[in-house]
């Protein structure tokens, strides 16, 4: 049993932050790694990337968007409640070695994961340029936290209600065109965003890492449900990833695989309402 020490609601209550007491995981987890959570006995196992940790206090932070039954159930939990299972850390850590100047790009809830990775880049002495996007001002998360660890920060919103109007690719293209010292781009967000970011960085030939979040059951390499095609080879996101070379990932296949259970998700929600 894992206690929820702190709960914070963000983005019109569609994104929730939990600080969970998990001292053993907090000691080991590195940026880019994830945990698998099972809320209760009848619950499913869902993967969530660790957004931050405090190994002294034994706390890990997860930030999740309400997308289905389990995340809706998690939103209904409060401080002092318990999660049945938290397994981790899982996946390979992100490569956050000193590279020089890195651009980190995050969209939507992806910023939550991005924060942990960007913080790692900064701690290792990189010059960090952060680009973060959201639909509108209210949906933006972790702005202050990102500002604290970024050397430069650009914010975009789709409707222009805050920061620059447009998608994250616009300031990215500007940077790529103006600066010649970018050693790497790291992108996390909706699959379509990562696809477009990679299209752009391919043009400028900048190495790009993306963090994928496919359907997953056990998270230990056992089920193969999280298979993605990278360089035309089948890779398991949970043990070979979640970070992959963004230029080698087959995004279209990933989008299709991720939409496999939409109907089941509806059935499950309907059942819980009944």
């Amino acid at each position: 049993m894992f206690e929820i020490k702190r709960k914070q609601s963000m983005a019109k209550n569609t994104i929730i932050r939990f600080d969970i007491e998990a001292p053993k995981i907090a000691k080991k987890v590195k940026p880019g790694q994830f945990v698998i959570i099972r809320v209760n006995e009848t619950g499913e196992r869902i993967p969530l990337t660790v957004a931050d940790k405090d190994d002294f206090a034994g706390i890990i932070t997860i930030i999740f968007q309400i997308v289905g039954k389990t995340t809706a159930l998690m939103r209904s939990l409060n401080e002092g409640d318990y999660l049945l299972d938290v397994v981790g850390p899982l996946g390979k850590p992100a490569d956050i070695e000193k590279k020089g100047t890195v651009i980190v790009v995050g969209g939507g809830t992806g910023v939550a994961i991005l924060y942990h990775v960007a913080k790692g880049f900064k701690e290792n002495g990189n010059y960090v340029i952060s680009i973060m996007g959201a639909k509108e001002k209210e949906m933006l998360i972790l702005e202050n936290e990102m500002a604290a660890i970024s050397d430069e920060l650009v914010i975009t919103t789709d409707d222009g209600s805050y920061g620059k109007r447009g998608f994250v690719t616009m300031p990215l293209e500007k940077y790529l065109g103006e600066r010649y010292d970018i050693s790497m781009v790291y992108a996390i967000g909706p699959i379509i965003m990562m696809k477009n970011v990679c299209k752009l960085t391919k043009k400028y030939n900048i190495p790009t890492m993306v963090s994928l979040n496919p359907i997953m059951i056990d998270g230990t390499g056992m089920c193969g449900g999280c298979r993605v095609r990278v360089n035309n080879e089948i890779k398991f996101c949970c043990v070979d990833g979640p970070d992959f070379d963004g230029h080698a990932v087959d995004y279209d296949e990933l989008i299709k695989r991720n939409s496999m259970y939409l109907q089941d998700e509806k059935d499950s929600l309907l059942f819980s309402i009944k």
Binding site: R45, M222, D264, F271, S272
Partner: peptide, 18 residues
Amino acid sequence: LTRMNLMKAYKFPEYDTP
């Protein structure tokens, strides 16, 4: 088999795993 046995998907939607 993991879905069916470990996660008891055959009892979906009582159990959450499809």
